Structure formats: C-alpha cells, structure tokens
Simulated scan of single mutants.
Amino acid sequence: MDHAGERTALMIIPLFLGAALNTFAPNTAEFFGGFTGALITGTLPILGVFIFCVGATIDFRSSGYIARKGMTLLLGKIGFAALLGLIAAQFIPEDGIQSGFFAGLSVLAIVAVMNETNGGLYLALVNHIGRKEDAGAFAFISTESGPFMTMVTFGITGLAAFPWETLAATVIPFLLGCILGNLDHELRDLFSKVVPAIIPFFARQHAEFWHAAPIRIAGYIHRGFCGHVIRRLSVLLDRFIARGDGVAGVAASSTAVAAVAVPYALAEANAAFVSVAEAATAIIATSVIVTSLLTPLATVWVDKKVRRNKHKTPPPDKQVTLH
C-alpha cells in the first residue's frame, strides 16, 4: 500500500471502529470510566492538542509561493462556505430538516463539510505525487481542521454568535503553537510529527452505523453535491489565484476527520446547535469516509492528466507560429 493509501486507511478504519463502538456498545465510556472513558469521550482535550500542534507547523518565513497557495485555498473555501451557509439558511430551519428525503440536513452540516479540509490527507497526496513545492501549504490548510474556522464563519455571517471568550479559547492554543514553533525550529519539527499521529483519536464518533438511514442518504447526496462544488472551486482558486495547475486544489477537497468533533464543540458553545449536532455529526462522518476514498483517486487522475498535457505541449522553440 502506498503512502496515500495508508493515510486513507488511517482516516477510515478508526471511523468505522468508533461508529461500531457507538452502535453496539454505546455505554462503554460510562461503564469503564477513567482513562478508557476519557479516551473515548475526550474529544475537546485532544482537539486542543491538535490545534496547538497545527499552529506550531506554521512558518512565518514561508516562501511567497507557499503562502499564496495556502492562503488562497484557505480563505477561498472559508468564503465560499460562508456564502453557501447564508443561502442555505434561507431555506433550512434552524433546527434542521426534520423529515423527508433530506432529514437531518442543517446549515451546520453544510458549513462544516465545506469548511473543514483534511490537511493530513492533503500532505500525504502531494508528497506521494512528488509535489514538494505544494506540501508547504499544509500548514495553512490544516488550520481548517477543528471548530475555530467554522465558528468564525458563523460569526462573520451573523448566522450564530459565540462569546468572545469561546473564540479566544479556541485560537489561543493555535497562537501558542505558532509562537513556539517559530521561536524554536526543533519544537516545530517535534510538534509537526504529532499532527498525523493525533488524527486517529478523532475517530470516537457520536454517529452510529444504523443512525437514521435517511440521514445517511442525505449525507451521501450532500457530499456528492458539495464534493463536486468543492473540487471545482479549489481547482479554480489554485489555477487563477495561486497560479498553480489545479492538482493541489483537488488534493485539498476532502473533509477533515476533526470535522466530526465540530457539531458538538459548537453545541457546547451555543445551545442553538444542540438539536442538530447529532444528525450533523452523522452527515459529516459520511463525508469524511467518502472523501477519504475519492479524493486520492481524483488527485492522482488530475495529476496524470496535467502531466500528459505538459508532455503534449511542444517547447517554445518548436512551437509553430501561424502568420
């Protein structure tokens, strides 16, 4: 199995294990308690460490190309998620769709899926296909993993409000990581290795295998639509703003494993999300699984297509000029 395949397995296997645990033994954490219970239910402490370590990977002296690539994909996707959230809020009730074919769909599910990029999978893919120059954008893209950017999106659009203490508490670990990582390069190297190691621990899901079949169906349809939109958007951003060839944009079109922790993190900060958190988690988990499978395939396919087109283009001195 290649590195991209290993990273895909890293995303999917813990998701299934976590879902199986919640389906067949949902009271495991309460039964054992202690360290076992904390490992199963302690999403927020793990997420705090993850955000800190992601912050440590940011290099303030990044090259212009890396910064342009990373910031383009980051801000472009957040901006589009905000726009889509505003549009969806005009049609979807605050407590989500309660019945019918799209039962369980909510503005929270839509924004979180669009907003959360799997930085670890992106890094594995661009390294696998030999695009070392794009790998540096990982630090910027990884900042989308976790609740902070989704909180910001809801805040700037006016769709929800969060106390400033909550926003500060979310961003402080990231800023501390940034400071330490830039003060000491050895610390940056140390914490950057922790980021992929933490990912499997987000597998503790609230979602169950058999949790409301319509919600799963809505999740697949929602992911199919959003997946196509995200890929197209990311490719356009990469080509026309970051001045790339679109491959990095495709590699950044997945949904982060950390996104499954977002609904309940937001529900703890704002009670308005409590009623939609469980269904949103199920839809997001579906998106994580689907994109973990499809994003590597799409990235490799686009990369091969780009390479073929480059080989077909004759060098400048051999191109035919029509008069």
Rank of each mutant, 00 (worst) to 15 (best):
G119P: 10
E133T: 03
A168Q: 04
A139K: 05
V152P: 10
A248W: 08
G130C: 07
R216W: 14
V152H: 12
S142F: 01
W164K: 11
F201T: 00
V247F: 02
P214F: 10
G181D: 02
M151G: 07
E186H: 14
C178N: 12
F154L: 03
L180T: 04
G130D: 02
F148Y: 11
S142I: 09
G249Y: 06
I217H: 11
L237F: 13
C178M: 15
N127V: 05
R188Y: 04
I230L: 14
A218I: 01
V195Y: 07
L125F: 03
A242Y: 01
I156E: 04
R131T: 00
N182M: 05
I199K: 08
E186D: 14
P147Q: 03
L123Y: 09
P147E: 00
E144I: 01
C226A: 15
F138I: 00
V152Y: 08
F209K: 12
L121R: 04
F154D: 03
C178H: 04
V152R: 11
E165Q: 13
N118K: 01
G130T: 01
R216G: 14
F140G: 02
I141T: 05
V235I: 13
S142R: 07
P200K: 07
V195K: 09
G120I: 03
L167G: 06
A242G: 08
L180I: 12
A169L: 14
A160E: 10
I241M: 09
N182F: 06
H206F: 13
V171S: 11
P173M: 06
A218P: 07
L190W: 11
I221K: 06
F140D: 01
R223G: 15
D245C: 03
G130F: 02
I199H: 06
E186K: 15
A203N: 04
L125Q: 09
D238Q: 10
F240L: 09
G119L: 07
L180S: 01
A218H: 06
I217T: 12
M151V: 03
A139V: 03
D245H: 12
G227P: 12
A168G: 12
G249K: 07
G130R: 02
F140R: 07
R231G: 00
R188Q: 14
A197V: 14
